[in-house]
């Protein structure tokens, strides 16, 4: 039997699907598209996945990224129209309660911190904005504009427990920011990728970060704290990140999306319509990582895969979003 099997195909978008995200309980999926809509999917009768709502008429251009708040009641969506919308589903229906303006052009990615109190957005305008959630009624305040990248910022990802943010860019680097606590500082700039870094994802502990990009490689970075036994130097309370593993030769095109499951599997979606899943080998250490390919699904879609994300349920289920206008739900059979 095949290691990766498609269980459901989500049909409805009329243009490329850029992103697909599970809500925290794994019961709903949000997808967004160049058709300027967000679709919410859930299980109907016979365990089939059906479209429950279409959120349209709000953004004027492509919706590039969606993210659920940790409580599952709010959905943030970043658009090429340079704004981010916040949707509230407290009363059952999705209602837009805020539009965050400030970026000069396309918003590329949105992400909530683990507490749900902070939202990060990034844009082609080279900046990362950190917003504070003031209340549940849609009051948001920009705390900080981080302008440390030299080019478009493609992706932002929060540490799973701490107020640490990673951003990846067209400038080929990854930046790590930390709340100091009265100022946001860029702790480290991670260099090593030879081209655009499309996506970043922390592991469950937050001590490691996976990145992927246009150089067709995947990198694992390990965090070193002050006073580390390895003797890696750093300034003050900063932490330092070092590349401890590079996986190249597996992908034949740009890698657009990466996701690290709570049980240790790394999933990628790429520009050759292919899904790859890697896992750490028994000999791997934090200082010297070693990962092996577990499964590959060639032609998982008819076109590029833009988003790939593990379900939070830990049941080896994941979702992919593609240029072929579909999102698909998959199962890794191990």
């Amino acid at each position: 039997t095949e290691l990766i099997t498609c269980t459901h195909t989500l049909k409805g978008h009329t243009a490329r699907v850029w992103d697909a995200k599970w809500n925290p309980t794994g019961t709903l999926l949000a997808t967004c598209s160049a058709d300027k809509t967000i679709r919410i999917w859930g299980q109907g009768e016979n365990n089939n996945w059906i479209c429950k709502s279409v959120l349209s008429g709000h953004h004027e251009r492509t919706i590039r990224s969606v993210a659920w708040s940790p409580c599952g009641l709010f959905l943030a969506a970043g658009s090429f129209d340079s704004t981010t919308s916040i949707w509230d589903r407290t009363d059952g229906e999705f209602e837009c309660i805020a539009t965050l303006e400030g970026h000069n052009n396309e918003v590329k990615c949105v992400a909530w911190s683990s507490s749900g109190q902070l939202l990060a957005t990034c844009s082609r305008d080279k900046s990362v904005w950190i917003w504070e959630v003031l209340d549940d009624e849609g009051e948001y305040e920009c705390l900080m504009v981080l302008g440390t990248h030299k080019q478009d910022v493609k992706s932002v990802a929060w540490h799973p427990t701490e107020e640490i943010l990673a951003s990846s860019s067209y400038d080929d680097t990854i930046n790590i920011y930390r709340d100091d606590p009265h100022d946001w500082l860029c702790d480290d700039t991670l260099t090593g990728h030879a081209s655009t870094v499309w996506d970043v994802a922390f592991d469950k502990t937050g001590d490691r970060l996976a990145s992927c990009g246009a150089d067709k490689s995947l990198k694992i970075w390990t965090r070193y704290r002050p006073g580390n036994p390895e003797g890696i130097q750093m300034k003050g309370a900063a932490s330092k990140w070092k590349c401890t593993c590079t996986l190249s030769g597996y992908h034949t095109k740009e890698i657009y999306s990466i996701s690290w499951s709570n049980d240790g599997y790394i999933l990628t979606g790429d520009g050759s319509n292919t899904i790859h899943i890697f896992v750490e080998t028994p000999t791997s250490t934090l200082n010297e990582g070693s990962f092996e390919l577990v499964a590959t699904k060639k032609d998982g879609h008819l076109d590029d895969i833009n988003g790939a994300n593990w379900s939070p349920l830990g049941d080896k289920t994941f979702v992919t979003a593609s240029d072929d206008c579909f999102a698909k739900i998959w199962k890794l059979n191990t």
Binding site: T62, R64, F80, Y170, T196, A214, D304
Partner: peptide, 12 residues
Amino acid sequence: NKQLADKERVAA
């Protein structure tokens, strides 16, 4: 070349 290869920039 980098700009032309970036499908997100082309789409935008």
